[in-house]
């Protein structure tokens, strides 16, 4: 069984915010609610790196633990969903979440919270009918049900944001790390450059 995860590769993330608008696009998230955001540290200085952050669909999800109405479920795919019909908008998940994922739209009155809204891993809500008008209205698209992955990751400009089965993502990332390690090693000049290139590319006819 798949265990769905996001991973943002900070070496590749360029803070282009495609993930943010892709999410808005797919789920028609209103202004003021950002299911995904890109955080840049050391902004404008050497070492600047960005990370795209949303709900990380934790295994032991703090939001789920603290919810007073137990409105979260973890699907067999490992996606943490919540039920907007049950949600009371208390904000406890927001206090507990390490990633600032839960978002609360203005409720219109007295600046109180509306029902929580967060990344669904493009898996809609707990509704039984996938992509029913009701589900789309409340949670946005259910791409997993259509055999697709979250649009933010699918549209990532540099393929920094990865989404999918934890094992597959780990493999992709491991390959990148190996490549980078090799490159760093090369740059340091310890390995004969020609030899390494010969390994990488077959000899070209001249």
């Amino acid at each position: 069984m798949a265990r769905m995860k996001f991973y943002c590769d900070a070496e590749r993330c360029i803070e282009c915010n495609a993930c943010v608008t892709a999410c808005k696009n797919e789920n028609e998230v209103p202004m003021g609610v950002n299911r995904r955001r890109v955080v840049t540290i050391r902004d404008g200085e050497p070492g600047e790196r960005s990370l795209s952050v949303a709900c990380m669909h934790c295994s032991d999800a703090p939001c789920q633990a603290v919810c007073p109405v137990d409105c979260f479920i973890t699907t067999p795919d490992g996606v943490v969903l919540h039920n907007k019909d049950t949600c009371i908008g208390c904000g406890y998940c927001f206090y507990a979440c390490p990633f600032g994922a839960p978002q609360f739209p203005l409720d219109g009155q007295f600046s109180t919270r509306g029902k929580m809204d967060k990344c669904t891993f493009c898996n809609g809500g707990p509704e039984t009918a996938d992509n029913s008008p009701d589900e789309i209205r409340k949670y946005g698209r259910n791409r997993l049900a259509e055999g697709k992955l979250p649009l933010c990751a699918e549209m990532c400009s540099t393929k920094a944001l990865l989404a999918g089965d934890a094992g597959v993502i780990a493999d992709i990332y491991r390959k990148r790390v190996v490549n980078r390690g090799a490159n760093a090693y090369l740059a340091s000049g310890s390995l004969q450059k020609g030899a390494f290139e010969a390994l990488q590319t077959p000899p070209q006819p001249e």
């Binding site: 803070e15 915010n17 943010v20 950002n34 955001r37 890109v38 955080v39 840049t40 540290i41 050391r42 902004d43 404008g44 200085e45 070492g47 600047e48 990370l51 952050v53 703090p62 633990a65 603290v66 406890y92 206090y95 507990a96 979440c97 390490p98 990633f99 600032g100």
Partner: peptide, 30 residues
């Protein structure tokens, strides 16, 4: 040293990468 932390859209706590206090609060509540 995380230096300047920024995010778009600016403002609020969107610039907080990790809410470190969250776990402590969860422990407190639960």
């Amino acid at each position: 040293d995380a230096g300047q932390v920024r995010t778009q859209p600016p403002g609020g706590e969107r610039g907080v990468l990790i809410n470190v206090g969250g776990e402590a609060w969860r422990q407190f509540r639960m």
